[in-house]
Design a binder for these strands. Structure first.
Length: 521
RNA sequence: GCGGGUGUAGCUCAGUGGUAGAGCGCGACCUUGCCAAGGUCGAAGUCGAGGGUUCGAGCCCCUUCACCCGCUCCA
């Protein structure tokens, strides 16, 4: 509105959601959960570093996932594959083909599309087209322009004014080999007087000789290792292969702090099951396994403390299904209600036998399974729960963030992270009530007991004890042990629970066991 | 990619062309007896970066980077 200009410029955040996110981002930096990457050089778009508390949180998330998906079941094994894989993998999976998609944007109506799909027109000829000049009224204006040498016009408005062609750069391309690929490129093109088109072709060929790609998903490693793992682990369908690791994608838009980033960590499991026609009576069909995993994964988040009303399962509509799930497949997202709305935490897909067949065809290697009991060969269907470690860590953090209003005993109120104890970066803080009468020395001994058991503990003797409790609340530490005057008399300390602030007295020598027991609950 | 906004200490922010500031936090010491008490001292800033205008720029202009919001896009 025009009156806005006269008013004082709006300061600060516009919405509650924005205020909330700013508080989280600020807390993350102040307490060492997440820093902007390369911050002293001005940061780098969408890259973030996990600090001392953040790395603990994320590791705990990954450990809980591995525990639930691998160690606490017999039918899933893990792998840790190379981030750089053969380019053939990406050709077979379909990821590489998007590199050759020549994208153009219409300068008039802003539509984006593939140049080879746009309507043709004679280069140099003049065409007439209509452009919407006022979006509110829908008023159009007729314009004339010349068609470029590419000979294409916009499919929407007919305008020949378009941006340069750009390849959609989904994957991070690099090169392997100690010879600089630029030398090879120069060698191919120098002094040949190539036209623009020939030049591009020559460069592409030179680049492709040594090009490799950072994986855009971890899943393909499980497919290409299907036969290796199946044989080595002596395991048969239904069984799963799990993996955690970094993946890289040039996202069109990066947004919402660590939510969508070009470098991210995945926690994926490919669960190979017999196709329906080979299922015995009473055995789960692929669709039933799909439903099973949807429920499992939804419940995993709930068990680790995400509020149920902030969690939901959302089936994909037919038209948003991925290529690998088009036929007989299905996708369902576990979603969390982020401050900016519902968004994906994890996608569970029935990828059918698409991937194994695609790699079998491309590699020429057999990727079917022979079931000796049923005496059949088949390509297993794949049910894939694919989670984001960074997204999960963010969701746990957002969900745990709590502000309590001031009360009689706490006139400043408090900020606390109600993290599940097993996710909390610091498990226990050890505090002498005051810094005298031998309390620090006795507290040090308690601290040593935790350190020797590899339980992440934190010792703090600075400032009043209330302030130290507050600091721990803000870091999400579930338990505080306080050494006080009574400790020297009867060998007990107080244990304070973060959310209730209630205190019990326990024996010093039982402190480690008490905390361990509570963490195991 | 387009449009809008923001960028000053670790955090939140004040500073409309003339000496770089506040609160909180952080560190040391004193004090302290269970939920962010007080005192003393201290460290901390390329005012996002680069260029320009000016006698002089945190402030004006240009460029750029990063973040936020909306659109667009999204195997």
């Amino acid at each position: 509105m025009s009156s806005d200009k006269k008013e004082k410029k709006a300061k600060g955040p516009a919405s509650e959601e924005q205020i909330f996110m700013e508080k989280i981002v600020s807390l993350c930096k102040r307490r060492g959960f997440v820093f902007p990457s390369s911050e002293i050089y001005g940061g780098l778009k969408s890259c973030y570093d996990y600090g001392p508390l953040g790395v603990e949180l994320k590791r705990n998330v990954k450990n809980e996932w591995w525990r639930a998906m691998v160690h606490s079941r017999e039918d899933v094994v893990g792998i840790d594959a190379s981030i750089i894989m053969s380019p053939e993998v990406w050709r077979a999976s379909g990821h590489l083909s998007s590199f050759s998609d020549p994208l153009v944007d219409c300068r008039d109506c802003k539509v984006r599309g593939r140049a080879d799909h746009w309507p043709k027109a004679d280069p140099g000829s003049e065409v007439e087209y209509k452009v919407v000049v006022d979006h509110q009224s829908g008023k159009k204006e007729t314009r004339k322009s010349k068609v470029s040498e590419l000979g294409i016009v916009c499919p929407e408005c007919g305008s020949p004014n378009h941006s340069d062609i750009r390849s959609f750069n989904l994957m991070f391309r690099t090169s392997i080999g100690s010879v600089d690929p630029i030398d090879a490129i120069v060698k191919r093109i120098e002094g040949k007087g190539l036209s623009g088109k020939e030049l591009k072709q020559a460069v592409v060929e030179a680049v492709e000789e040594t090009a490799v790609y950072l994986r855009p998903e971890t899943a393909q490693a499980m497919f290409v290792n299907f036969a290796n793992v199946q044989g080595a682990a002596r395991i048969k369908p239904p069984f799963g292969i799990a993996q955690q690791g970094k993946s890289f994608r040039n996202e069109v838009t990066v947004e919402h702090f660590t939510y969508r980033s070009c470098e991210f960590e995945q926690m994926e499991m490919e669960f190979f099951v017999p196709p329906k026609e080979h299922c015995e009576p009473g055995e789960r069909t692929p669709n039933e396994w799909f439903e099973y995993w949807c429920q499992q994964r939804h419940d995993w988040y709930a068990k680790l403390g995400i509020r149920k009303e902030k969690l939901r399962l959302r089936p994909h509509a037919k038209d948003e299904l991925a290529h690998y799930a088009k036929e007989n497949g299905a996708c369902q997202d576990v979603e969390y209600e982020y401050p900016w709305g519902w968004g994906e935490l994890e996608g569970i897909a029935n990828r059918t036998d698409y991937d194994l067949k695609a790699h079998e065809q491309a590699s020429g290697k057999k990727l079917s399974y022979f079931d000796p009991q049923r005496n059949v060969h088949y390509h297993p269907y794949v049910i894939e729960p694919a989670a984001g470690a960074d997204r999960a860590a963010l969701a746990f953090l957002l969900d745990a963030y709590t502000e309590e209003a001031p009360s009689e005993t706490r006139k400043d109120g408090r900020v606390l992270l109600k993290l599940h104890p097993r996710l909390a970066p610091i498990k226990v803080a050890v505090l002498p009530l005051v810094k005298k009468d031998g309390m620090p020395e006795r507290a040090r001994k308690v601290m040593d007991a935790f350190v020797s058991q590899s339980i992440n503990a934190f010792y703090d003797e600075k400032d009043a004890v209330g302030r130290r409790y507050a600091r721990q609340d803000e870091a999400g530490t579930p338990y505080c042990l306080t050494v006080d005057g009574q400790t020297s008399e009867d060998g007990t300390v107080t244990i304070r629970e973060r959310d209730s602030m209630k205190q019990d007295r326990i024996k010093v020598e039982e402190a480690v066991a008490v905390v361990q027991r509570r963490l195991a609950e």
